[in-house]
Amino acid sequence: MIINHPLLGPRDAQEFTYLGDASLINRPDWTADDAGHQFYEYQYLRDNPAGEHRELWFHEQGDRSWLVVTRDTRTHIITNVELAPEFARKAGRSK
C-alpha cells in the first residue's frame, strides 16, 4: 500500500506503524461520572467496519507525524490522507 502523505507525497506503508480506528483521537472526559465506562468503550470496543475506515498511521520511519487515513477495508484503496492534528481540530479539538 502507498500512503499519500500530505507533506511528503506518496510513501510506502512499510514506513508507517498502524495504531487503529481514528476514534482513538476522541478521548473521553475523565471527569465525567461514568468516566470508567466511557474509557472502557474507548479503549476496547471497535466498529471494525467492512468498508470505509478512518485510521491512525504513524510515520515512524519518516517525519514522525500522525496521519488519519481513510481506507476501504475490503479493497485496501486509500481515498483520503490528512494530518491528524488538522483532523482533530476540524472535529472541534483545541490542539
Binding site: D21, E41, L45, R46, D47, N48, P49, A50, T73
Partner: peptide, 18 residues
Amino acid sequence: GSSGRLMAGAGMRLPIES
C-alpha cells in the same frame, strides 16, 4: 473474522478487530 460485521446486526460493538 466476520464477527464484527455480523454482530453489528445485533447492535453490538466487539472488543475485536479484523
